[in-house]
């Protein structure tokens, strides 16, 4: 990307100290929920963070939303570093980064009217006239396809899909640069998902906003995003432009996810990749490559001892797997020669 990214995350880590009891003795341990994650979200683009539960995608979202503080690493929105924001800079950040959560039933305060919910990012950050606020609320409600005349209603008068539209209207009201969409359609009815996804896509262009999409459904990621990063146990294992990733997944874990995804037609035959076991506990992650205990393509000892680096493959497709070490080495060699 030529222009400066909207969001730049570098070396992000979030380790939670936990205490456990083992044989009646207290042991201190660390959960590495997010363990060195870096990515950019380009202006007006969508990056999908894909992974199973416990992979750290939700914690990453919380860190960017400043609902939690990173152990180390930086998050930059444009030129501002998110750490230790105060006063005007803090208010500005709060206006610029918004979120839409998974469950539209719990993410809208049942005791607030739609207009209060939608205008909250506006009213808490700076003084605006009532007329401005009313006009903006009507504008964003219209944009998400709701009747502005319903602004006086309470959330329970709306269906799930409509509530998700209200949440989006609220997120858009302060004209943000980045909206984090945390599984925005997975709790909606199937017949509502398509209209909601189309709405998200349409409004992205209209409001020129970037999305960070947290999602477990690969097909949704493909439809919604420009770029995809696959996470496993707190690390990004593969990161590429959406079309590159879907046309040629490289990491064995990504391949396994593809194989496990449900087909769109009974005649779709998928490569049978049987992943045995479950995601290991992030308290005691495996040595070397975090995926090696379940990996069907394990090469050998190197997988158990050495953490593979996230390296660029063919110039644009980043993957962290020893399978592609030779290729990377060859590339470096040829560059040197």
């Amino acid at each position: 990307m030529a222009s400066q990214p909207t969001l730049r995350v570098e070396g992000l880590k979030r380790h939670f100290p936990v205490t456990m009891w083992r044989r009646l003795k207290r042991v201190a341990a660390v959960v590495k929920a997010v363990d060195g994650v870096s990515f950019d979200v380009g202006e007006g683009e969508t990056l999908a963070l894909v992974g199973e539960s416990g992979c750290g995608k939700t914690t990453t979202a919380k860190l960017i939303l400043a609902l939690d503080t990173p152990t180390s690493g930086t998050i930059r929105l444009g030129d501002t570093d998110v750490q230790n924001l105060h006063g005007e800079a803090y208010r500005h950040y709060r206006e610029q980064v918004q979120a839409v959560f998974q469950d539209p039933w719990s993410s809208l305060n049942p005791r607030m009217r739609v207009k209060e919910i939608v205008s909250e990012p506006l009213v808490v950050n700076r003084r605006r006239s009532r007329r401005d606020i009313r006009a903006r609320v009507a504008e964003v409600l219209e944009a998400v396809g709701l009747n502005p005349a319903h602004a006086d209603r309470f959330p329970h008068e709306f269906s799930g899909g409509q509530r998700q539209r209200i949440a989006l209207a609220s997120a858009l009201s302060s004209d943000p640069k980045l909206i984090i969409l945390d599984e925005p359609v997975s709790s909606l009815d199937v017949s509502i998902r398509a209209q909601t996804m189309n709405l998200f896509r349409d409004l992205q262009g209209q409001f020129n906003v970037s999305y960070l999409l947290i999602v477990h459904d690969l097909a949704v990621a493909r439809y919604m995003s420009d770029e995809v990063a696959v996470m496993y146990l707190g690390k990004i294992v593969e990161h590429a432009r959406t079309e590159d990733l879907f046309s040629e997944p490289l990491h064995p874990y990504t391949k396994a996810l593809f194989a496990a995804a449900l087909p769109g037609h009974p005649d779709v035959e998928r490569e049978e990749i049987v992943l045995e076991g479950e995601v290991p506990s992030p308290i005691d992650p495996p040595s070397g490559c975090p995926f090696h205990p379940r990996c069907p393509m394990k090469i050998g000892e190197i997988c158990e001892t050495t953490v593979p680096a996230l390296r660029t493959h063919q110039g644009r497709h980043a993957v962290s797997c020893h399978l592609y070490d030779d290729e990377a080495a060859a590339a470096t060699a040829s560059a040197e020669a």
Binding site: Q102, S107, N109, R111, P121, V124
Partner: peptide
């Protein structure tokens, strides 16, 4: 711990506002 309180924090609401506008009405 509800999502709407998380959303209010993301929107920049102060602790006081969250307690008075978001939590108190729900326990009324």
């Amino acid at each position: 711990q509800s999502d709407f309180v998380a959303r209010a924090r993301v929107a920049g609401a102060s602790h006081f506002r969250i307690i008075v506008r978001h939590i108190l009405p729900n326990i009324a």
